[in-house]
């Protein structure tokens, strides 16, 4: 089967700052790819390019058959296939948890209210928050909000999930509950790319780890690569904690 995501020699600058300097990698179906690297190495930018939140300067990105680098890209079709979860949850504060989840299926897929509500309940059950359907986001803890954000993406039945440091704003106690949800997803065969600082989690769950350094894929390998880094830069990165 062909790759779900493929990046080939992607370049991206913000003004004079070269953030991505020839990034290439692939994500196969059901594969879990962990992206690690120092702050500013371009991890978030790479994810945002994959979801067309940023446009690339050169290179090619193909996601679930969509040519993301093509100026004629149908962004909405791409977004139906790709879910993304951010560090800051970005739930809609004026809507209840269930309404947050039902919004896209009713707007984008023309699903009826009752059916969407059932769908919301089923994805909430998957993230262990069935009893919070009618609460507002501000009534939930950070970890619960983040799980709702994941559920909201799942409701669109994406073929690929992107996670950008989704546990970085959470204290360790709440981090675990979010990581468990992601692990379940991985086991269920979801293709995913996760930018993370949780090395233990990357080692355990990822089928492939990508270490980014200065806008390039510096080193890549299976989770075990973290125990036996080949480059000086990865060694230093792992040694310095984050």
């Amino acid at each position: 089967m062909s790759a779900v995501v493929s990046l080939s020699n992607v370049h991206k600058s913000f003004g004079a700052v070269q953030v991505l300097r020839g990034v290439s990698f692939e994500v196969g179906p059901g594969e879990v790819v962990a992206v690690i690297g120092a702050s500013g190495s371009g991890k978030s930018t790479a994810l945002r390019c994959i979801n067309a939140l940023e446009t690339v300067d050169s290179g090619e990105i193909t996601v679930c058959g969509h040519k993301v680098h093509d100026p004629a890209l149908d962004r909405r079709a791409l977004r139906r296939d790709v879910g993304i979860v951010f560090q800051s949850y970005n739930l809609f504060p004026h809507l209840t948890v269930a309404q947050n989840i039902m919004l896209a299926p009713t707007c984008v897929k023309d699903m009826g209210k009752a059916e969407a509500r059932k769908l919301a309940e089923s994805v909430l059950a998957r993230v262990g928050l069935s009893e919070k359907a009618d609460n507002y986001p501000e009534q939930l803890s950070g970890g619960q909000q983040q799980r709702v954000a994941i559920a909201r993406s799942l409701a669109m039945q994406p073929k690929l999930m992107l996670f950008d440091e989704v546990t970085s704003a959470l204290d360790p106690q709440l981090t675990g509950e979010v990581l468990r949800v992601m692990e379940d997803l991985a086991r269920g065969g979801m293709s995913m790319i996760l930018v993370t600082h949780e090395m233990a989690f990357a080692r355990k769950v990822a089928s492939k780890v990508i270490f980014m350094h200065q806008g390039k894929v510096w080193e890549t390998g299976p989770g075990a690569m973290l125990d036996d880094p080949q480059t000086q830069e990865l060694r230093e990165f792992l040694h310095n904690g984050l």
């Binding site: 939140l53 962004r75 909405r76 977004r79 951010f86 809609f92 707007c107 984008v108 669109m156």
Partner: peptide
């Protein structure tokens, strides 16, 4: 801005 972005990523027009 992140609210726009979250809505955009859910494929809303």
């Amino acid at each position: 801005k992140t609210q726009w972005e979250a809505a955009e990523c859910l494929a809303l027009t």
